[in-house]
Design a protein around this nucleic acid. Structure first.
Length: 347
DNA sequence: TACGCGTGGTC
DNA sequence: TGACCAAGCGT
């Protein structure tokens, strides 16, 4: 049995909870796992089409394990946080090799797989196996911080630990799967970040945030930090047959493992695009044509991208990060590109 | 412990 | 329109 809080949530879930999301249809550990990874820091409506395409191409953990990493990244292209895709692929191989293709039910064993942390392990154990395990995703954090009046930003370990304790204490012994879905649904549908629908909340009578008449004050905000600004030239280099020069980025760091446009030597200044310079790569093209620079804002910094279309017969130095390849636009778009680069290439 | 890691939605 | 943030994890 559970406490009053969990009983209220389960009753509410039976009447209002979400039960028709794509990963609810067949709750195999594999499908739950893929959905949980995609949903990390990513909204449900964004994930749905990616999940459907991914499942069509990789219907089982064996299909995923035997695929080339490049193709997996291609199916992830546009979702962001590409380490998730690299870890997903690596974990699929481990599940096949270490666990004979069967996901372990124990959260601790799940957590030993790359890309699966405490909350995701618990979510898989609960959703796929109905095992008692507490989750603490962004929704649960918000619900619990408000209900218990937990002060401070959950990014701090002490605050997170306090929330984990509340998460554990409320997790019932029955209907784990429904309770787990219930607390996430309540956070997504009622206890929203802004303008929470407290009048519709099944636990408002015990909620400290509600009693203080300021639920939006919880959880505490992340202290804001100055975002660094970086500038670079991205080279849009096309050969006589319409193929583009692309670079395979190294496996770690920004856009790890994806194809991108090569970058010019950082010493290159905007006003001095050289007619000739020492070349890492000799490229012969036709007419110079500079595109407008634009600022792309990432979560953590601003990036000025100065697309330089090389069409003059000239050479230019490339700051090389990874292997360079010539691909047609169609091939490039299919292989998978970071969203801003995709936008550049489509022009 | 604090930071790096994408993209799109929202206001 | 820029700031903030979403079903976190790895290092």
């Amino acid at each position: 049995m559970g406490d009053w809080f969990s009983q209220q949530l389960l009753d509410w879930y039976d009447r209002h909870g979400r039960k028709e999301l794509p990963w609810h249809r067949d709750r195999s550990a594999y499908r739950v796992w893929v959905s949980e990874i995609m949903l990390q820091q990513t909204q449900v409506t964004t994930v749905i089409p990616y999940f459907e395409r991914f499942m069509e191409r990789f219907p089982s953990v064996h299909d995923l394990a035997s695929a080339a990493r490049e193709e997996v990244l291609g199916y992830w292209s546009g979702l962001g946080y590409y380490a998730r895709a690299r870890n997903l692929h690596a974990a699929a191989i481990e599940v096949v090799e270490r666990f004979e293709g069967e996901f372990p039910q124990d959260p601790e064993q799940l957590q030993s797989l790359p890309g699966i942390g405490r909350s995701t392990a618990a979510a898989i154990a609960a959703q796929a196996f109905d095992q008692r395990a507490a989750i603490l995703d962004g929704n649960a954090k918000r619900v619990l911080a408000r209900y218990h009046g937990v002060e401070g930003w959950p990014g701090k370990t002490a605050v997170a630990n306090e929330l984990w304790d509340h998460a554990e204490e409320h997790t019932p012994h029955e209907r784990i799967r429904d309770y787990t879905q219930a607390i996430m649904d309540l956070g997504a549908m009622v206890c929203t970040r802004r303008n929470p629908a407290c009048a519709s909340c099944p636990v408002r009578t015990g909620c400290i945030g509600y009693a203080r008449n300021d639920p939006e004050a919880y959880p505490g905000r992340k202290p804001k930090k100055e975002k660094p600004e970086k500038t670079l030239w991205m080279l849009l280099i096309e050969d006589g047959e319409g193929r583009l020069l692309l670079e395979e980025r190294p496996p770690t760091g920004i856009w790890g493992g994806l194809l991108s446009l090569p970058e010019a030597d950082p010493a290159l200044q905007p006003e001095e695009v050289p007619d000739h310079c020492e070349s890492a790569l000799g490229v012969e093209t036709n007419m110079p044509d500079s595109l407008e620079p634009f600022r792309h804002t990432f979560s953590h910094y601003h990036l000025w991208i100065r697309p330089l279309r090389l069409s003059a017969r000239r050479t230019i130095s490339i700051q090389e990060h990874g292997r360079l390849r010539w691909l047609t636009r169609e091939q490039a778009l299919e292989a998978g590109l970071p969203a801003p680069i995709r936008g550049l290439i489509r022009q």
